Amino acid sequence: MQVQVHPMWESYPKIKADLLSVLQMVESHVRIHDKNIESTIRDLIYSGGKLLRPAYTLLCSQIGSASSQEKERSIAVAAALETLHMATLVHDDVIDEADTRHSNPTIHTQKGNQFAIYSGDYLFCVCFTILSKHASSLAHLEFNARSMEKILTGELDQLNSRYRTVASVKDYLSRISGKTAQLFAVSCYSGAITSDASRRQAVTAWNMGHYIGMAFQIMDDVLDFKGDSQTLGKPSMADIRQGIYTLPLLYAMKAKPNVLHPLLAKKEALTENDLMQIMEIVEETRGVEKAQQVAEKYTNKALKALAKLPDGEYKRTLYEITTNLLHRTV
């Protein structure tokens, strides 16, 4: 299968070429005796994701003064982080019982849960195999191990919060801080580290990535209400169907708890009519608009952090990508 990257990178040929190298590095480390599993994992690598996290790593690898000879190391770190992301997605799909991702059938729907969990576990191994070969220091490797722990804790927090109608906005923000924002932060920080950036610059990159990740997840949750299955690549309102209550719904619950709580109490028994009624209440209470405003605030915080970083062409690209994520439709 030919390696391809998302069309969004057509306007950025240098990043596109580097992202192709990232995918090729991931592919080169997938070596399993069971060719059925190997083929399934390769299909996942080529499934058409945006590759945002490795892109941020690559862009932030231009912050410091390291020479172009360090490019292989930044690509390797980007590949490790993207592999980590893919592993969490495979496990997510099992937990969420998701049938599709990027409009493609998920691994567990094709092969079963055990097969999917094994594939996800293998990808975790690939992540650390790549990272151990190219980590600039053991401290860097330990940092990423601790970061993965926080990411997985965020996933567990989401699992434990399913169908909890008492969840608050603060709880939600804390959850996505671990579940999504952590990996964006690590991606930006790791890129800066590979470029020999200063400690202050690396921390600024970390903060920028955190804010980007927060905004990204909030907009992802907004699109769950605004999009349709064709554009999203998965069923709309999938989160509510799984008992995951995100920011637009939390704002609506705060405004109309007496109407929403009886509906949400149905849990897995929610009908399509129930979902339509929930959607109408979210629209009526401006839940989506309020959530978008929060995403915009985080985006602005990310851009303020970006402004503190050294000048360079990479800054213009980071600004464009980060701004465009706020207005995306998929």
Rank of each mutant, 00 (worst) to 15 (best):
Q2D: 10
W9G: 07
P13T: 12
K14C: 01
L19K: 09
L19M: 01
V22Q: 08
V22H: 10
Q24R: 14
Q24P: 13
Q24T: 15
M25A: 05
V26H: 04
E27K: 08
E27H: 05
I32H: 07
I32D: 05
K35W: 03
N36C: 10
I37F: 11
I37S: 15
I37L: 08
S39W: 07
T40Y: 12
D43N: 13
L44W: 11
I45S: 02
I45R: 07
S47P: 13
L52W: 03
L52I: 08
R53G: 05
P54A: 07
A55S: 06
A55L: 14
Y56F: 09
L58V: 06
L59A: 13
C60K: 15
S67E: 14
R73F: 00
A76S: 11
A76Q: 04
A80C: 06
T83D: 04
T83L: 02
M86I: 05
A87L: 04
L89Y: 03
V90Y: 08
D93C: 01
A98Q: 13
Q110F: 01
K111C: 12
I117P: 00
D121C: 09
Y122M: 05
Y122W: 05
L123P: 13
C125D: 12
F128T: 04
T129R: 10
I130T: 00
S132E: 01
S132F: 04
S132R: 13
S136W: 05
S137V: 00
L138D: 06
L138G: 12
A139Y: 06
H140W: 02
H140G: 09
L141D: 14
L141S: 14
L141N: 01
A145G: 03
K150A: 11
T153W: 06
G154K: 03
D157Y: 05
Q158A: 09
N160W: 12
S161F: 11
A167W: 06
V169A: 11
K170M: 08
D171I: 03
Y172C: 03
L173M: 11
S177A: 08
S177R: 08
Q182A: 15
L183A: 10
A185K: 14
C188E: 12
A192N: 05
A192P: 00
D196N: 12
V203K: 13
V203Y: 15
T204R: 12
G209T: 13
G209P: 06
G209Y: 09
G213K: 02
M214G: 14
Q217C: 06
I218D: 06
I218C: 05
K226T: 09
G227W: 02
D228I: 02
D228H: 03
S229C: 04
S229I: 15
T231P: 00
M237K: 07
A238Y: 09
A238T: 11
D239R: 00
I244G: 08
Y245I: 10
Y245Q: 02
L249Q: 07
A255V: 13
P257A: 02
N258G: 08
V259A: 14
L263H: 01
L270D: 03
E272V: 01
Q277N: 15
E283S: 13
E283C: 10
E283D: 15
V288I: 07
Q293S: 13
V294E: 07
A295Y: 06
Y298H: 07
Y298M: 04
K301E: 11
A302L: 06
E313R: 13
Y314L: 02
K315Y: 04
R316W: 14
R316A: 14
T317E: 10
L318H: 03
E320S: 14
E320F: 11
T322S: 05
T322N: 10
H327M: 15
T329H: 10
